[in-house]
Nucleic acid binder design. Structure first.
Lengths: 248, 248
DNA sequence: CGACTAGTTGAGGCCAGTCAATGTTGGTGG
DNA sequence: CCACCAACATTGACTGGCCTCAACTAGTCG
């Protein structure tokens, strides 16, 4: 369930919604990239009051009517896709600055659900408003397209990973992806704390949690990484890259 | 390589580009859906001269500059994603009426490549033109969003399939998806000819070609389907659905 | 006809899943 | 503050589904 924050006095500012948005320019997937200050302010104003979502609670549920995207402000979310038989697959992992909910544009309702991995906050961005602004502002429209194609490409990358990689390769790719995302946000790329449990990592990578645990241990034995629960240190990036790129 | 058809005298008509577009309304993912005749004609005119692509040739290659989407007119295409090490994964399968290339919008170049599975034709739709028209015509914009979210959702469905289904479930899901797509185009849903080789099906489903072959044989032994090379007859839809929905 | 591609089937091995036991961490309440 | 419990994580033993290698058949095309 979405838990709305008790009405806040301050206006939501863009910097609040995108705590590190400048850093994200690197990846080129950020809505405000390159906008003139007028459009920037307008986009800023379009964001709704931030929504606080506690750990394990829903930002939105599958099948809930779609009306807005969400910009992650604080914390992390996972996107979950459900099968009729109750099976589920984590299809996305979002951290501060990411946009959640794109799979709903053009649909009546959300196709998957978003759940907070820790106490988090996200700013709703009513899609009707974004659409209208994008209609008038070519650069914003272009950024929206970027966002979309980035998500599409990510889906294809995951298909490649799930369809053709071994457990060790999958985990190495996962760690390198995380490293890159932390790096682009200005955090350490080689030392970070996982927000997902082993089970969630396993679901994301199409494995069992025991396998994830075993591969972590093996990579540690081999001196490639150092793991202590959720604290991870990447010791040998070259070795990790090597594991992703080459089938044995 | 893209092989351009010797200039055709006739104007490309929408009906040509979308041979069965009316039927596709069912799925609600068709660009011209619901457009007034004026916008319809304009969209019609935006399509370029159809491109003929022979079996095994490229409609576009990975890394080629992105400028247009393609509406499949005749035949079928597969979308292929490449890893640095040469591994590849089929990420999409497109038949007449489908739109190929969405992963390129907002990017400089295509993220994957499209290859014809048989002698085929596709109509280029310059994205700049589509974008400009969508800017002016809300309904077209909405249809574009639909197209996109449909692709995003399909990606997530594939992640679910690749991440959590067994070989038999994957193949059953694949056959049911094909059946639905043939049905929505007015063809028989229970009897059709595959355009993909066993190897291509295997790549799409994250399996080995021998496994695909074996599962086909097993499903035939069990009386669920009938296979003769690429000719497939679905005998027991309920059994197929049952196999997808329930982990054993 | 030979060369080639596509598909089927068998034998065997291995990676990852499954089941189970144990250790560790973190939050909660007495 | 510590005891307790639940959630999370690790590790071992075993199993089995899928991969790998290989042989063979059928169909196609120059």
């Amino acid at each position: 369930m979405v838990t709305t924050v008790a009405a806040r006095p301050q206006v939501v500012s863009l910097r609040d919604a995108y705590p590190l948005w400048a850093a994200r320019n690197v990846r080129g997937t950020c809505l405000p990239d390159g906008l003139k200050s007028k459009a920037l302010l307008e986009l800023d104003a379009a964001f709704g009051i931030p929504v606080r979502v506690r750990k394990r609670e829903f930002l939105y549920r599958a099948g809930a009517p779609f009306s807005a995207l969400y910009a992650v402000r604080i914390g992390t979310f996972k996107a979950l896709r459900l099968a009729e038989d109750g099976r589920e697959q984590i299809t996305g992992y979002y951290m501060a600055g990411d946009i959640v909910g794109l799979e709903g544009i053009g649909e009546e309702c959300h196709g998957c659900e978003a759940i907070a991995l820790e106490d988090s906050e996200a700013c709703p961005l009513p899609f009707a408003k974004l659409d209208e602004m994008a209609r008038r502002e070519p650069l914003l429209r272009r950024n929206l397209y970027r966002l979309i194609s980035h998500d599409l490409a990510r889906g294809q990358e995951m298909m490649l990973l799930l369809g053709s990689m071994h457990a060790e390769e999958r985990l190495a790719a996962f760690l390198l992806d995380l490293a890159e995302r932390f790096r682009s946000r200005g955090y350490s790329a080689s030392e970070f704390v996982l927000r997902m449990t082993r089970e969630e990592i396993a679901s994301y990578l199409g494995l069992q949690l025991e396998t994830v645990s075993r591969v972590f241990s093996r990579l540690q034995e081999e001196g490639v990484i150092q793991v202590q629960g959720r604290a991870v240190k990447l010791l040998d990036l070259a070795a990790l890259h090597h594991r992703v790129g080459h089938e044995r």
